[in-house]
C-alpha cells in the first residue's frame, strides 16, 4: 500500500475562567491565510472525553483538510491545582483540541498524534489562563504525523496483493452507451418494420408503351399503374 508521512498542525479552541470560547492555537497556515474562524466555527465538542473524531473541511483557499479533534475536560492534575478548574460561573472547562492534516482516505488516527496535540494544547492553555485578557492566538507549528495517510491518488493495490476488480467510471459509461445503442437499434428496426414498404412493380414498361403487358383488375394495380406511368412520363 502506498502511504505518505505528512505533517500535522495542532490547534486549540477553549474558554477561560472569564473569557469566552475562542481559538487559542491555530495552525500556522490558517493564520497566514486569514482563516482564523474555521475551526471554532466547525469543531463541536464530543460527549465522550478524548475520543478522536475526524471532520473534513475545505479552507477558504480551497485546501482539503481533515481535522482530528477531541474534547478534554480539564482536571486539577492538568493545571497542577488542588481542585478541578472552573469558569467564574462554576462550569467545568473543556478543551477542544486536535490537529489538522491534509485530507486522506480511510485512516484511523494514531493515538500518539492526538497525545502530541493535547500536550501542545495544554501548554498553550496554561499560558492563556495566566493572562486571559491579553492572550493572543498562537501559531501551531507542524509536527510529523505518525498516522499513515493514503491519499486518493495513491490508493493503488500494493505489489503482490490480489488485484480487486472495480469498474471505472469510463467502463460504466461505455457500457451504458453500448446499451443505449442496442436499444436505439431495436427501436429503429421495430419502427422500420412497421412502415409499409413500397410494393415491387409487378410489370416492366417497355419502351414506347405506357401500359403493362398484363394489366390486373385490382385497385392496387391501378395505383401501381398510375405511379409507374408517372415515372415513365418523367423519363420522357
Amino acid at each position: 500500500m502506498a502511504t505518505v508521512t505528512a505533517q500535522a498542525w495542532p490547534f486549540l479552541v477553549a474558554r477561560g475562567r472569564r473569557a469566552g470560547y475562542r481559538t487559542l492555537l491555530m495552525p500556522q497556515p490558517f493564520l497566514a491565510e486569514g482563516d482564523a474562524a474555521l475551526l471554532e466555527n466547525n469543531v463541536q465538542p464530543s460527549g465522550v472525553p478524548d475520543r478522536p473524531e475526524v471532520l473534513n473541511l475545505t479552507t477558504r483557499m480551497g485546501r482539503a483538510i481533515s481535522v482530528v479533534h477531541a474534547t478534554h475536560r480539564l482536571t486539577a492534575a492538568d493545571l497542577g491545582q488542588a481542585d478541578d478548574p472552573k469558569d467564574e460561573h462554576g462550569r467545568p472547562l473543556h478543551l477542544l483540541y486536535g490537529y489538522v492534516r491534509p485530507r486522506g482516505t480511510r485512516v484511523e488516527p494514531d493515538p500518539a498524534d492526538l497525545r502530541t496535540a493535547r500536550a501542545t494544547a495544554l501548554e498553550v492553555y496554561r499560558r492563556f489562563l495566566d493572562d486571559e485578557a491579553n492572550f493572543t492566538t498562537g501559531a501551531g507549528q507542524p509536527f510529523p504525523l505518525r498516522t499513515s495517510l493514503r491519499t486518493p491518488a495513491e490508493s493503488r493495490p500494493a505489489p503482490g496483493a490480489a488485484p480487486r476488480w472495480r469498474p471505472s467510471l469510463r467502463v460504466v459509461l461505455a457500457a451504458t452507451l453500448a446499451l443505449l445503442c442496442i436499444v436505439f437499434l431495436l427501436f429503429t428496426l421495430t419502427i422500420l418494420g412497421d412502415t409499409p414498404t413500397p410494393p415491387k412493380p409487378e410489370c416492366v414498361i417497355e419502351a414506347g408503351t405506357t401500359d403493362c403487358p398484363t394489366p390486373t383488375p385490382t385497385g392496387s394495380s391501378t395505383a401501381q399503374k398510375r405511379m409507374v406511368g408517372g415515372t415513365s412520363s418523367a423519363r420522357k
Binding site: 469566552g20 470560547y21 463541536q44 465538542p45 478541578d84 462554576g90 462550569r91
Partner: peptide, 12 residues
Amino acid sequence: PGGWPAGTTLSE
C-alpha cells in the same frame, strides 16, 4: 457538584 452543562460553543 460542579457538573453544570458546559457552555455553548461557537460551533453549537
